[in-house]
Design a protein around this nucleic acid. Sequence first.
RNA 1: UGGGCCGUCGCCAAGCGGUUAAGGCACCGGGUUUUGAUCCCGGCAUUCGGAGGUUCGAAUCCUCCCGGCCCAGCCA
Length: 554
Amino acid sequence: MNQDDSKPGANFIRNLIDADQQAGKHGGRVTTRFPPEPNGYLHIGHVKSICLNFGIAKQYNGQCNLRFDDTNPAKESEEYVNAIKDDVSWLGFEWSGLHHASDYFDQLYDFAVDLIKQGKAYVDSSSAEEMRSMRGTLTEPGIESPYRNRTIEQNLELFASMKAGEFDDGEHILRAKIDMTSGNINMRDPALYRIRKISHVRTGDKWNIYPMYDFTHCLSDAIEGITHSLCTLEFADHRPLYDWVIDQLDTPCHPQQIEFARLQLEYTMLSKRRLIQLVNDKLVDGWDDPRMPTVLGLRRRGYTPESLKDFCERIGITKNDSVIEMAVLETCIRDDLNANAERRLAVLDPIKVVITSLPKEHSQTLSFQNHPQDESAGTRAYEFNREVYIEREDFAENPPPKYQRLVPGGEVRLRGCYIIKCTDVIKNDAGEIVELHCTHDPDTLGKKPEGRKVKGVVHWVSAKTSLTATIRLYDPLFSTSNPAAAESFESEVNVDSVTVMSNARIEPSLAQAAPETRFQFERTGYFVADRIDHSQQAPVFNRVVTLRDVWAKP
RNA sequence: UGGGCCGUCGCCAAGCGGUUAAGGCACCGGGUUUUGAUCCCGGCAUUCGGAGGUUCGAAUCCUCCCGGCCCAGCCA
């Protein structure tokens, strides 16, 4: 429904790039990159960054690379690399170049040697603890390492030996020689290379030393000709170092690092470390659990790429430390599915209704519209019999005020069918309602009843032709709006966040739905055929989101 | 209390010296409706964290103050 090329909203980064374009910076070229570390699955926070980087490249007819920041072999794996590529593709983005920071290890090493030759980097043989104690504190300057004045020749030799594997992890480290008294701790002789005698997914055992983020990222950007290097706010303090490294070395260009605020969403938590914890502690069923804020989780839940992109467009890009309400995300998927999902009937918690005014063998084929606002979606045949199921909560013996569904002696319309009147409530020995007896008004099919108004409309399925299905309903994974702020976020987990309706009844065609097909089950919400568990024999649907419901509001 | 960053409606967010201070979400009405959905129409900041100052004119410039976020990995 949305025209795909609607103008993106203004934000400070686009304003800045407009100014760069105006000034002819980079010859008018715009190149961005999305640079994840392959140490976990992507979540909706990454989607914000992906939409920004790819969106800007598209807007300015530029390029956007996908680059894996794989400089810490201890944490990274191929599994994550593949998952990240799948997620970006599923979102609908195509990267211009696919790179790995490890592709640049040779060049990076040469840059480091260059720095040593300029006297701007040195090998420090202090232990990690010693380094920490010499770094100073937030308010006190650090002190210089006793190894800071080694000669260029000594440094060159030591660094070569580090590379050759002559030392163990932690024995030495390559540091930039900047300023131990800087107010910015990142400038107090930051580490550039550390010894890590473990093999790397892509470079195997070739390297005994691996470059640090601060040395790698800026140079990788420069090597790729990135013009605008967009990252989150916590890297703002690293920008002076980013610029320092590039300024010392002979690089193809000097990208501009620009920081924006990370996404924060209510009732969830976007921290890789903690998401891993949820998975490992089995608080969720995996990275693709429909309650997870991961791309895989949102996908399985039924969110569409379009809805996520719409979400990113709506929340904007700023440096404000803002927290987005869940309602925004839900509105995005409702808007998409309202326009694009076909309607079906399904009863989550069925109760049988016998229409006693109809003969036992009554069978009638009705025609239902697949979409109320879109004729082109067509119609489908829908069978009506003497026995149907309606939602248990659509009948009330003692209705609350303003209840407009079925009550004893009351009338309600079966959606797309007749108006029925409840004549008897059948209970078992325990006093539970097991069945309702109703009569129908034969003169109300496709027309309003004579002389009275019947407000309530209730969805239903035929007892004879409907199929049993499993339908999962979800609530937020956390019971508090800011679980990350809690002492132990795991105690904030909402233990009742999944409700499995295993006796739901669905109209028969639904069993044939391909996995990941989305529908609106009228009056109960938007649902998706589960991409893993759904089959024709055992249909399984997940509720993506409920319909907006003014009546249900607390 | 060192350095960096941020404060515009309940939640986001445009705005960049002259606007009646956009828009979205949420909320509150009202209309249409065989989904209490959708859709439509209307309402919703005389005010921009606070106080001073500059200016004919300030959310936009200056000063001070208040509040919040980030940084002391051989993680990214």
